[in-house]
Amino acid sequence: MIKVLFFAKLSEQLGCRELQVDATAVENTDQLFQYLIEQKAEWSSILTSQFCLKAVNQAMVNNNVLLKDGDEVAYFPPVTGG
């Protein structure tokens, strides 16, 4: 399984904090995005916003990244700590 996490404003907009996706259903982060918006079309604009950042296994990524069973993908808005 691939663990998908959403944080802060993004999780409120989506109404979801965490879900699991079968690792055989997606090979990379682009396919994961397609998979997510097939389940919930209304998520598309939120997840494609310039204010949506992405991390794979707790490291920020910009491009398409290969995924394997046990990986963790997170979507979140620009950070505002400090």
Binding site: A8, K9, A55, M60, P77, V79, T80, G81, G82
Partner: peptide, 27 residues
């Protein structure tokens, strides 16, 4: 460290205003 922390570390602030409304702080 502070400059990097503020733009890289995954923390998010949500404020409650004096009128009771809440809002996420924008970067």
């Amino acid at each position: 460290i502070m400059d990097y922390l503020k733009t890289q570390a995954p923390f998010w602030k949500k404020e409650t205003m004096s009128d009771g409304q809440t809002q996420w702080v924008d970067a």
